[in-house]
Computed example of a mutant assay.
Amino acid sequence: MAGISITNNKLIIKSKAKAKGDDGYKVFSIRLREELYENLTKISDQAGYSRNELISMFLEYACANCEIEEN
């Protein structure tokens, strides 16, 4: 996962220069609570990543660190 690392269970996002990404992605919409949207915007402004890039990073991290617990 480029641009991120994990330290003490914290997701560390390294800032980057503004650049457009490659194609090959799927597009879909999601609904977010306003507070979460505002938090993403704040992190986006600080790190220099778009909200879309951050959401992708967060989802990659979550998928890589997810465990399914059977009932």
Rank of each mutant, 00 (worst) to 15 (best):
Y49V: 06
A19M: 08
A17W: 05
A17D: 10
F28H: 04
S44W: 07
I43D: 01
I43N: 00
E60Y: 02
D23Y: 10
K20V: 01
I13R: 03
L36K: 08
N39I: 05
Y49W: 13
R33P: 13
V27P: 01
K14A: 15
I30W: 03
A17R: 02
T41A: 10
K14Q: 15
S56N: 11
I6N: 08
K26D: 07
D45L: 12
K20A: 08
G21H: 12
L40G: 02
D23A: 10
T7P: 02
I43P: 01
S15I: 13
M57F: 07
E38D: 06
I12T: 11
L59C: 04
K20H: 09
S15L: 06
F58P: 01
G21R: 13
K20F: 08
E38V: 02
K14H: 15
E35Y: 09
D45S: 15
A17F: 09
L32A: 07
I6C: 14
L40I: 09
I43H: 03
N8C: 01
K10H: 14
E60K: 03
S44R: 04
E35T: 08
Y49P: 01
I30F: 02
F28C: 06
L36I: 03
Y25M: 09
R33Y: 10
E35N: 14
T7F: 07
I12R: 14
S50N: 06
M57Q: 01
Y37R: 11
I55V: 14
S44Y: 06
L59M: 04
E60H: 08
R33T: 10
L32N: 04
L54S: 00
Y25N: 07
D45G: 13
R51A: 06
I55F: 00
Y49T: 07
E60G: 04
S50L: 13
D23K: 12
L40K: 04
K16A: 11
G24M: 15
I30Q: 04
E60C: 05
I55H: 00
G21L: 12
A19N: 14
R51M: 14
S29L: 06
Y37A: 12
I12W: 11
T41H: 12
N8E: 08
K18A: 14
G21T: 06
D23G: 11
Y49M: 05
I43T: 09
N52T: 15
Y25G: 01
F28W: 07
I55A: 03
Y37V: 04
A47Y: 03
I30N: 09
L32F: 12
E34K: 10
A47H: 07
E53A: 15
R33L: 11
N52F: 04
N39D: 04
D45I: 08
A19P: 00
T41M: 12
I12K: 12
L54E: 02
I12F: 12
L59S: 02
I55Q: 00
K26N: 08
K14G: 13
S44P: 03
I55C: 01
A17N: 05
S29I: 13
K20E: 13
I55P: 02
L32I: 05
N8L: 00
L11W: 00
